[in-house]
Amino acid sequence: MGLATATIANAEDYQRVLSTPHPVFLLFVSAHCPACTEAVPLFEKVAARYPIVVSMVLDCAQTPRHPEVTGTPTGLVYVNGELKEKLQGFGPLEDQAQLVEDTFARYAS
């Protein structure tokens, strides 16, 4: 599992990614978002420690709009194709590492 490099091109691609029996953590980002600059390396670092979770960073400019994403960064966690958690941003900088770690840990067990 781990970090995927696939591009989401349409609704069918979303369904294909979500059809896995493993948890899926999608991080939606924008190239012009200062908070995303901090969020992506943190997300990738934590994701590398949880290979059971399918983890993807998706650039909103290159990905079809997702109805749950109204700003960036936004994290969506799916289990068995069902949205379980939505993170709009990762909160204050000093709390971000723990929030991302806790979120991955919740779904990796």
Results as ranks from 00 to 15, higher is better:
residue 4 A to Y: 07
residue 5 T to R: 06
residue 9 A to D: 13
residue 11 A to P: 10
residue 11 A to R: 05
residue 13 D to Y: 13
residue 13 D to P: 14
residue 13 D to M: 12
residue 16 R to P: 06
residue 17 V to G: 00
residue 21 P to N: 12
residue 22 H to I: 01
residue 22 H to F: 12
residue 23 P to L: 02
residue 23 P to D: 05
residue 24 V to N: 03
residue 25 F to K: 08
residue 27 L to R: 09
residue 28 F to E: 07
residue 29 V to N: 11
residue 36 C to I: 11
residue 36 C to Y: 14
residue 36 C to R: 15
residue 37 T to D: 11
residue 38 E to K: 13
residue 38 E to G: 06
residue 40 V to R: 15
residue 41 P to L: 00
residue 41 P to K: 08
residue 43 F to M: 02
residue 45 K to W: 00
residue 45 K to L: 08
residue 47 A to L: 01
residue 48 A to G: 01
residue 49 R to N: 12
residue 51 P to D: 01
residue 52 I to S: 09
residue 53 V to L: 01
residue 58 L to Q: 07
residue 58 L to C: 04
residue 59 D to S: 07
residue 60 C to V: 15
residue 60 C to H: 03
residue 60 C to D: 08
residue 61 A to V: 10
residue 61 A to W: 12
residue 66 H to T: 03
residue 68 E to V: 02
residue 68 E to H: 14
residue 68 E to S: 04
residue 69 V to D: 07
residue 69 V to W: 08
residue 69 V to H: 08
residue 69 V to K: 10
residue 73 P to I: 08
residue 74 T to S: 09
residue 76 L to H: 03
residue 78 Y to A: 10
residue 79 V to Y: 02
residue 79 V to K: 10
residue 80 N to Y: 13
residue 80 N to W: 05
residue 81 G to E: 11
residue 84 K to V: 04
residue 84 K to A: 06
residue 86 K to T: 13
residue 86 K to F: 02
residue 87 L to W: 14
residue 88 Q to I: 08
residue 89 G to L: 12
residue 91 G to Y: 15
residue 91 G to S: 08
residue 93 L to I: 14
residue 99 L to I: 15
residue 102 D to V: 04
residue 102 D to Y: 03
residue 103 T to Q: 00
residue 106 R to V: 02
